[in-house]
Design a protein around this nucleic acid. Structure first.
Lengths: 229, 229
DNA sequence: ACAATAGTGTCTGTCAGACAATATACA
DNA sequence: TGTATATTGTCTGACAGACACTATTGT
C-alpha cells in the first residue's frame, strides 16, 4: 500500500458539484433529475452536477449556478450549500469530493426533455450517492421550514397566505394553526401586499396577494421560537 | 482564456481539510492554531489542516480525524462538518477546495509547543481564508448552542450543572435563567449523575456531578423550543 | 339569501422567567 | 450560627392553539 502523497498524478482526485433542485407540485416535494448523457451511469436519472471548472468558476457556488444555468436553464434561484460528500467509492472514476447545494424554485410549467421531477419520498435507486444527497437536502429543508422563511421560495409570486400555508403544511407533514401562521408572517415582515387581489375557483371572499420583500429574496429570516409546533 | 476541461494536469485542483478545534478557557471561546512548518505561510499561525490522502482516507471526515490525531494528538472529539470553502485565490498554490470541520473539546491542561489557543473574538489576521472559516464555525456553534446539547462537549467530565450553565452563558453571551436551564436539561435527559459529589471553594452546599450519557457522546440532542431566551 | 373561503378578535392552557424557600457544606 | 451556593417549589406573564365571529365574493 502506497503512502499517499499530496496530489500526484496516477491517483487523481475528482472534484464536482451536485445540485438538489427542489420544487412543490401536486402536493408533493419533488426533485429535478436529469438523464445522464455520459458515462458513468449514462442513461440513468441523476442530480444535475458537473466538474468544477477551475479556469472559469470563482468557487463551488459559482459552479453550482453554472450547472443550474446550463442544465436546467435557471438563472438565480435561492441556493444554499448543503454539505460535501466524499470517498473512494461514491464515483467509479475514483476518489471524489462533491460539494452539494440545494435550491428551491416555484414549480415550472413543464419539464424539458431529459428532465423529470420526481417526488422525493418515492425515488428509485440513484447513481453515485445521489440518494443520500437528496435525503440530506430534504431533511435540511424540512428542518429549516420549522423556523425560517425558506419555503417562500417554493411559491410562484404573487401568492396568497393560504397558498403559503399549504406549502408549509406539505413540507412539515402536519397541520399548522392558521391564526398562529398569520401572526408569525406578520412578525417576520418578509411579505408585502400587492395591489391587485385574487379570486379562487369558488364563490367566496378573495384573498390578498403578497410577494417577498426584496431584502429577503436571497436571505432567509429566522423566527424566534419556530412556528411552534 | 482556455475553455476549462475536467481535471487535466497543468491546472491542478487542490483538496484539503481544515479543522476548527474549539475550547473554553478563562471564560473565553478559543481556537487551536498551529505554527505552520511548510510553505505557504511557513511560520504563520493557522488552523490544523492538510491534504486529503486518497490512498488512506475513506472520506474527508476521516482526513479531518487524521489531522486532529497527527497534529493535535486528539482521538475522537465531537466532530461535525462545517462547510466547504473554495476558489482560485484562497490558497496561493492554486484553485482549492477545503472541506472544513469543527470540533469541541474540554480545554487541555497546556498547549504543546507550536500550538496556541487564542480567543476567537480577538484573532489576528490568519493565512488563507482561515479567518472566515473560524468565524463561520463560531457562528454555527453559538447558533446551535441555543437549541442543542452541543456545549456539553466543552465541559471536562464530570461537571456540575453550574459549570455547564456558565458554559452556555459564555457561548450565548447573555444570562440564562437557572430554573429554566435545569428544567431543559431534565427534559433533554442527556446527563446522568455520578456517585461522588463535589465541593467548590467556599462554604456552601456541594453540587451533584454529572456526565453525558453514552448515547449522546457523539450525537446531539435538539431541544423543542430552544433554551428560550 | 347561501355557500365558501379570507381574515380578525378573544379565551385558555402551557411554559419560560421571577421569586422565594429549602438544603448543605465550611467557617 | 452565619454565609454561600445548590436545588426545588410556586406564581405570573407571554404566547400558541382553539374557537367563534366578521368580511366578501359568486351563485
Amino acid at each position: 500500500m502506497t503512502t499517499s502523497t499530496n496530489s500526484e498524478a496516477g491517483n487523481k482526485l475528482i472534484c464536482t458539484v451536485d445540485v438538489v433542485l427542489l420544487s412543490l407540485s401536486e402536493g408533493q416535494l419533488r426533485v429535478l433529475l436529469l438523464k445522464r448523457e455520459r458515462e458513468p451511469f449514462a442513461g440513468a436519472w441523476a442530480l444535475p452536477g458537473g466538474y468544477v471548472h477551475i479556469g472559469e468558476d470563482q468557487g463551488c457556488e459559482d459552479a453550482a449556478q453554472r450547472v443550474l444555468r446550463q442544465k436546467a436553464g435557471l438563472e438565480s434561484p435561492y441556493l444554499e450549500q448543503l454539505a460535501s460528500f466524499s470517498g473512494p467509492a461514491r464515483d467509479p472514476r475514483g476518489w471524489s469530493v462533491s460539494v452539494a447545494y440545494f435550491a428551491l424554485v416555484p414549480h415550472p410549467e413543464e419539464a424539458l426533455p431529459g428532465q423529470q421531477w420526481l417526488p422525493v419520498d418515492r425515488l428509485p435507486q440513484l447513481p453515485f450517492d445521489h440518494g443520500s444527497i437528496v435525503a440530506t437536502a430534504v431533511e435540511r429543508v424540512r428542518s429549516k421550514s420549522q423556523y425560517s422563511s425558506l419555503p417562500v421560495h417554493l411559491c410562484p409570486e404573487p401568492f396568497t397566505i393560504s397558498q403559503l400555508h399549504a406549502v408549509y403544511e406539505t413540507l412539515l407533514g402536519e397541520p399548522i394553526n392558521t391564526v398562529s401562521f398569520r401572526r408569525k408572517l406578520d412578525e417576520l415582515a418578509i411579505l408585502e401586499p400587492v395591489v391587485g387581489e385574487k379570486r379562487t375557483e369558488g364563490a367566496h371572499r378573495p384573498a390578498q396577494l403578497y410577494r417577498v420583500r426584496a431584502e429577503f429574496r436571497q436571505r432567509l429570516r429566522l423566527v424566534g421560537r419556530g412556528l411552534n409546533r
